[in-house]
Amino acid sequence: MSSPTYLMTMPLHAVTEVYGEAGLRDRFHLETAAFAPADRERLAVALELAAALHRDDRRVREPYLNHLLRVAIRIIRYYRVTDVDVIVAALLHDAVEDHAAELAGLPAGSSGSAATGAALAEVARRFNPRVAGLVGAVTNPEYEPGRDRNEQYRAHLAESLGRDPWARVIKVFDFTDNGVGVIHTTGDKVESSARKYRPLVPLFRDLVTRSDTPLDAAARAHILGQLDLAEERFAAILDGPDDPAAISVARSRQG
């Protein structure tokens, strides 16, 4: 593993490519080294819970935990958020949506609103109700059959994030990793992700610039730049599939 100083200067996707999950874990521990011992313990518990729940999950080329670590690290490093509840919720932001039954101790295959409610109650018990509320706000509801899933996803985000500023912060970091990181994805997932996420760029621009979004001016500016970069990459994927130069430019800009 590289020196701590060098590891702290690397873009997160570079850490992922070179050192994998172990490097991201080391980076997370470095980012939280100045936190109070009790706060570091809460974060360690949340990280190991996320690792256990997502142990068999993958995002195309990598363990799913890498995504959760990058989201949490961005919150601390680039946006100077030190609210431990928010960072815990970031680590667990997909736990209820993807593993409600296991988290709640229900029989395998249990799903629906009852399983979601039980899983959120377990998050509240293990951490606190605020963490559970944040996770709940970024957890997708069940989709209605016969309606476009991506449209339902956008409508859910607009409503849920519109009323919860801190959930808004978590979700925009999630989007940053998914949207800007789409260029690191391979196969059919590249185009499907671009089609899913591209219509969300205007929504996130609006949410980030709202007066009640709890980020400073520098953080807002950085996120808006990341949204521009994500849009550039979506355009390279969806509008110019036969334009190698456009894709090359999009790949050359690190996110």
Rank of each mutant, 00 (worst) to 15 (best):
H13N: 12
H13P: 01
H13Y: 07
A14G: 07
V15S: 03
V15L: 06
E17C: 01
E17K: 14
V18T: 15
Y19D: 13
E21R: 14
A22K: 14
L24R: 11
L24E: 10
F28R: 06
H29W: 11
L30G: 05
L30Y: 06
E31H: 06
A33Y: 02
A36G: 03
A38T: 10
D39V: 07
D39E: 15
R40Q: 14
R40S: 03
E41Q: 11
E41Y: 05
R42C: 08
R42Y: 08
L43H: 10
L43N: 12
A46L: 07
A46D: 08
L47R: 08
L47F: 13
L49V: 03
A50K: 05
A51I: 01
L53C: 00
H54E: 15
R55N: 03
D56T: 15
D56W: 06
D57P: 03
R59E: 12
R61Q: 10
L65T: 01
N66S: 07
L68K: 05
L68N: 05
L68F: 02
L69G: 10
L69P: 14
L69S: 09
L69D: 09
R70V: 09
A72N: 04
A72V: 06
I73V: 15
I73H: 08
I75A: 13
I75T: 11
Y78G: 14
Y79G: 01
Y79C: 04
Y79L: 13
R80F: 01
D83L: 10
D83V: 13
V86P: 04
V86N: 05
V86R: 10
V88T: 10
L92I: 10
L92M: 14
H93I: 00
A95W: 04
A95I: 00
A95V: 01
V96N: 01
A101V: 00
A101Y: 11
A101F: 05
A101Q: 05
L103S: 09
A104R: 10
G105V: 11
L106Y: 09
L106P: 12
P107W: 10
S110G: 07
S113G: 02
A115G: 11
A115Y: 11
T116M: 02
G117T: 08
L120H: 02
A121F: 00
V123A: 02
R125P: 04
P129Q: 02
A132C: 09
A132Q: 12
L134F: 09
V135M: 04
G136T: 05
P141L: 06
P141R: 09
P141Q: 05
E142H: 07
Y143G: 09
E144A: 13
P145F: 08
